[in-house]
Every structure is written in structure tokens, then in C-alpha cells.
Simulated scan of single mutants.
Amino acid sequence: MLATIRSCSPERRSGCRDDGAPDWAAGLPVAWREMAETPLHFVEYREYEMPASRCLGYDADDKLCYYAHQYLIETCRSDDDEDFYRAIDGGETMRAWRLRDERWLILRQPITDDCTSPKRGFYSFSTEAPR
């Protein structure tokens, strides 16, 4: 895996996408934004053998406060047993935010069939950070 460190200075927190850092608030419900800890720097891991990545965001105390991963499982298919092509078999997109009360708000979105965009997801709470 390849790791990349990206930072957002306090004055640029809302514009992190301009310097390449992930849009950590995407998918976070408006009602929960005030409760979520704001990540100041990120470490991103990318898998080189398959379409997969993981992003970890850390707060001012260098404590994990944001987690995201995505992956696609590909397969080879053929319509005529002569020409093969790659197709998406499944996958997942997940984002999680640490709230000020130390709970984690988690959004999971499955990816199915040949559609690489995530399906409608669901939210849940956890007392532990995702792994």
C-alpha cells in the first residue's frame, strides 16, 4: 500500500478539497456536523493491486476522528467465451466520524453489479472506530 499525508491548516479547513485532502464532511448529515470532530490532517493509503483506498483523519490532539474506505471487487466476464472484459462484482464505500461524545457515526454504502456509484446507504452508531 502507498501512504500519502495531506494537511489542512486551520484557516483552510472548509476548503480542503483545493489542496487535495478529502472532503471529510461529504455524507455527514447537517444535524450532526456540530457534533463531529474536525480533522486537521489526513493519511491516505491506496492499494496498487486493486481499486481500494483508506483515509484516516486526525484532530488537533492527533487522535483519529475520521475514517473512510472504498473498494471494488472486479471479475472477468465473457458473453461469448472468446472476448473477456472486467466487470464490477461488488464493493463498499464507508465513512465514519467521531462525535464529541466519543461515539462514531458510520455511513455504509454498498456497490453492486456494474454500477460503480454507491447505492443508498445506511447510518449506524458504534462505540469503537471502524477497522
Results as ranks from 00 to 15, higher is better:
R17C: 04
L2H: 12
E128R: 13
P39W: 07
T112P: 00
R103N: 11
L40F: 08
L2E: 12
C76M: 13
C8T: 10
D89F: 04
R95K: 15
E47L: 08
G27T: 03
C55P: 00
S124D: 05
D19A: 14
D89I: 00
A26F: 07
R17F: 09
A52K: 11
C76L: 14
G121A: 07
C55M: 09
D79P: 01
S9L: 14
A68N: 04
Y67I: 00
R6L: 15
A25Y: 06
E44W: 00
P110F: 03
V43A: 11
C115K: 05
L72V: 01
P29S: 05
M50Q: 12
S126H: 04
L99M: 15
Y48W: 05
E34H: 10
Q70H: 11
W97I: 01
Y67C: 01
G20A: 13
Q70A: 14
P10E: 09
R98A: 04
E11N: 08
Y123I: 07
R54T: 14
L107H: 07
T4K: 14
A26L: 11
E34C: 04
A21L: 02
H41T: 01
I88R: 08
A36Q: 05
E44T: 12
D114K: 02
P118L: 03
R120H: 09
F122L: 02
W32E: 15
D23F: 02
W24K: 01
F125W: 14
Y45V: 03
Y45R: 12
S124G: 03
S117E: 14
Y85W: 09
H41C: 11
A129Q: 06
W24L: 05
L107I: 07
C65R: 00
F84S: 06
M35W: 04
C115V: 09
E92R: 15
S78M: 08
R12L: 06
P51S: 08
D61G: 11
G121I: 07
L105S: 08
A3L: 12
D89V: 01
E74K: 09
Y71Q: 02
L107E: 03
L105I: 10
D61Q: 15
M50I: 03
D59T: 08
R54V: 13
I5V: 13
T38G: 00
M50F: 05
G91A: 07
A25D: 02
A36T: 03
A25V: 05
E47N: 15
P22G: 07
L107W: 07
T116D: 10
L2M: 09
A36G: 06
D23Q: 10
L64I: 11
C76Q: 13
M1T: 12
F42Q: 04
